[in-house]
């Protein structure tokens, strides 16, 4: 695999991990526009542990996830008092506050950022991503996961069927925060650097878009969303390099991205991957299989 390809793959996988961190609360009906906050916490924690305390990589990633999870758990109780627009704004504000705090910790680099020498390549990133996806798939297949998806569809009815709404939402938010921390830990060691600018204002927006564009109904949603929005801009960039007449795509690829977001919301308001879509695909596969056995 070429260096370029493995670089793109690494970014794609990290984006997926971070997308799943926003997906878990979204699957329970909570919009989290604060992905950057947990990514920064995980990134600075893991980066600090490997560069300042000399920890090996894997424990640092785990502790980063754990710490981000603890922060998410503590934050969940006040944040879950807010609903709708207020929750979107509160999570967004949280991310900015986290950025502001790390900007003012000189021992972690402050405004100049934190450089780390430990490198996380694909041999670390691939298994971590697989574990994260497996964890999400497992969580969704438990009773807790069922309760999460029920809460997403109808909070009031879920409550009447004995779903402990607060517990389910706190769990989804906490698990999401932990995954965000793991994503951040991978990010800092992939680029050997993190600063507050790594996750600008648009970062959390992009991650939320991955999830909502991909669809919140199934675990395939964030996978498809992250894939779509990592690979399409890369293809557009490659095209702009190959042909001078496509030079405008260099900066213009984000315009294409934005237009895609708007159009997908018009055509597929429930996201790219929905339960109904999967049902249709399964139905036609079954018919195909039946035809083959008949023949």
């Amino acid at each position: 695999m070429s260096g370029y390809m493995s670089g793109v793959l690494a970014v794609l996988l990290i984006n997926m991990v971070i997308a799943y961190s926003v997906f878990l609360p979204a699957a329970a009906g909570l919009l989290n526009l604060g992905a950057a906050g947990f990514v920064l916490i995980g990134g600075y924690t893991a980066g600090g542990l490997t560069s300042r305390a000399g920890w090996p990589l894997v424990p640092a990633i785990l502790v980063a996830g754990l710490f981000a999870g603890v922060v998410a758990f503590v934050l969940a109780f006040p944040i879950l008092r807010t609903r709708g627009v207020y929750m979107v704004l509160a999570t967004f504000a949280f991310a900015e506050v986290v950025g502001g705090i790390y900007l003012n910790i000189p021992s972690l680099g402050g405004a100049t950022g934190l450089s780390v020498s430990t490198y996380a390549g694909l041999p670390v990133i691939i298994p971590t991503t697989v574990c994260v996806v497996a964890f999400v798939a497992w969580l969704l297949s438990t009773r807790l996961g069922l309760a999460m998806r029920a809460a997403h569809d109808d909070e009031n009815v879920s409550l009447l069927f004995g779903v402990n709404l607060r517990m389910v939402q706190v769990a989804a938010f906490t698990a999401g925060g932990a995954l965000g921390g793991i994503g951040g830990a991978l990010l800092v060691h992939q680029f050997n650097f993190i600063d507050v600018q790594t996750t600008g204002v648009l970062f959390s927006i992009y991650v939320l878009l991955y999830v909502l564009i991909g669809g919140t109904q199934t675990a395939w949603g964030p996978f498809a969303g992250a894939l779509f929005f990592t690979v399409v801009p890369e293809i557009l960039r490659t095209m702009s390099k190959l042909d001078p007449s496509m030079k405008f795509l260099e900066a213009g690829r984000f315009i294409v991205f934005g237009i895609a977001v708007v159009l997908i919301m018009v055509v597929r308001p429930e996201g790219l991957i929905t339960r109904t879509l999967i049902e249709k695909v399964q139905g036609s596969l079954r018919r195909l299989a039946a035809r083959e056995t008949a023949a």
């Binding site: 709708g84 909070e155 900066a251 315009i255 708007v262 919301m265």
Partner: peptide, 26 residues
Amino acid sequence: GDATEHALPLVSSLGFLIIFEHAVIT
């Protein structure tokens, strides 16, 4: 029927934010 799909206009407006910002940069 559910919570997150009410986010539709929000998502579209985020899309427009990206479009305009990069149109100006281009």
